[in-house]
Amino acid sequence: MELTGYGIRADLPSGWEGTIALDRDPDSIELVGIGASLQPVAHLASFALPSDRGDFGSGAVDVMSRDDVFVALVEFAPEEAGAALFAQEGLPRRLDPRAFSERSLQRGLPGQAGLQVFFHEAGRAFCLYVVLGDADDAHRLVRDVEQVLATLTIEARR
């Protein structure tokens, strides 16, 4: 099923659901008052996403099972696209299961493993954040994530 919004498009496989919304973080909303703009955040998951969750999945990763995966695509201000942090070009379609670590989790939960990749594409700066429900089954779960990443497209913002 297709999920489209804010120049991001994904074709979700069976059992997956997702949202693409503007960043609802209170700090970001506060910055709007001084001229900043809200950036989109895409959440894709192989489980039912709870409504109340943070940009990096807090509130969602707590309820995922060991068989599940969570993917967040968090956009940063476009002027960041040229920064060294976002030097990697293009959304990574293949992920190395060995690169996942418990230390990469925004919210450390037993058994889970995470990975953060910063990149730029179409003049936009992003962080791809992936959480696996079971660090010991990383190879299988990463394949599930890659299946979704293969369908993700990012267009330039107008």
Partner: peptide, 22 residues
């Protein structure tokens, strides 16, 4: 059928109801 649409704050939403454990 699975449902797709928008949230009240303009977000794009896909909700799975078919072939899910719950």
């Amino acid at each position: 059928v699975d449902l797709a649409g928008h949230g009240p704050r303009g977000e794009s939403v896909v909700v799975r109801v078919v072939e899910v454990p719950h």
